[in-house]
């Protein structure tokens, strides 16, 4: 085991944890906001996938920043459908989310086939922004502080979310919309607008997460490339108990599991790839079994809301 703990292995594991963890972090932060507002956004994976595809197309033509913008917009477009159907018209959130995911999977696969079936273009690596001083540190330097700007942006988003939840009226309204929408309504808030804004924000975050996957991490788009990351992000958001920092910790943990395959190969460990690829999902199950009990989810999570419903709360 001792020969595993070489600097090369540690750097690869850390770098991989960031690369695989940032999409989870972004999508998880978005999902967290949506869940706070009482919308269980099962279509998160679809929003990521839409973002990944749109970002790839835009980055292919106009560079990575255009890609990130396109990814966010694509995620928001899918989220807009979710907001109209499940928030405005109160349709079942789970059914809507699943329908969106299946739809996006199909559409992106077809579009990719039509446009890139023969060429399989590859994006050039996104330039990194080494942070002066920190980037020269051993092990942590190249893994943490010599990365594309969007990595730092994703981590800054953790603080931004915490600020929104703690210090803004919107954060308060989110919590009320998730715990007891009728209270928000009675207080003069707007439940539909609050929930819709949260879903759109979740779409933007998930789209950006997908964009990171295709533009930064992979450099290509492959149909179904999100491969369950959206669902892991949903679990992360549920386990984080409303705290953005917990999403960051969880994303890094799962990112480490996802990247373990590569890192183990760097270290020259001969483990079957199939077993190693099961790691993140086994970790999800383990974490759920350990911390899933007594999780504090919003009381009205998943419940459609209509004003003055005689059967509602």
């Amino acid at each position: 085991m001792t020969d595993l703990l070489t600097p090369a292995f540690a750097t690869a594991l850390l770098a991989g944890a960031i690369t695989a963890g940032v999409p989870l972090l972004l999508a998880g932060l978005g999902e967290q906001m949506s869940q706070k507002a009482g919308v269980l956004n099962i279509g998160l994976e679809g929003m990521m996938l839409a973002g990944a595809y749109a970002a790839f197309v835009a980055a292919h033509g106009a560079g990575p920043w255009a890609g990130f913008a396109a990814g966010m917009l694509a995620g928001m477009a899918v989220a807009a459908v979710m907001a109209v159907m499940s928030v405005r018209f109160g349709l079942n959130q789970i059914v809507t989310g699943i329908a969106l995911l299946l739809g996006v999977e199909g559409v992106t696969a077809i579009l990719h086939h039509l446009k890139f079936a023969t060429t399989y273009p590859r994006l050039s690596p996104v330039a990194s922004w080494p942070l002066p001083g920190l980037a020269e540190l051993p092990v942590a330097g190249p893994a943490l502080f010599d990365r594309p700007a969007i990595v730092y942006g994703a981590i800054a988003l953790v603080a931004a979310m915490a600020w929104i939840y703690r210090r803004t009226y919107f954060g308060l309204a989110l919590q009320a919309a998730g715990e007891r929408p009728s209270a928000l309504d009675a207080a003069g808030g707007d439940v539909v607008r609050t929930r819709a804004a949260a879903v759109l924000a979740a779409g933007a975050c998930a789209g950006l997460g997908g964009a990171f996957m295709s533009v930064v991490a992979a450099g290509i788009f492959v149909p179904f490339m999100t491969n369950g990351a959206g669902f892991i992000a949903i679990v992360l958001a549920m386990l984080a108990r409303g705290r953005p920092l917990m999403v960051l910790c969880g994303a890094l943990l799962f990112g480490a599991c996802l990247s373990a395959a590569t890192a183990l190969q760097v270290a020259g460990v001969d483990a079957p790839v199939d077993i190693v690829q099961m790691l993140p999902f086994a970790a999800v199950l383990l974490v759920l079994a350990l911390f899933g009990q007594g999780g504090a989810l919003p009381a009205a999570l998943g419940e459609a809301w209509r004003r003055g419903d005689p059967l509602g709360k």
Binding site: R167, T168, Y169, L172, A173, A176, A183, L184, G188, G189
Partner: peptide, 9 residues
């Protein structure tokens, strides 16, 4: 709750 615009409370 609901007492102001979205930002600073």
């Amino acid at each position: 709750l609901g007492g102001g615009p979205w930002w600073r409370r």
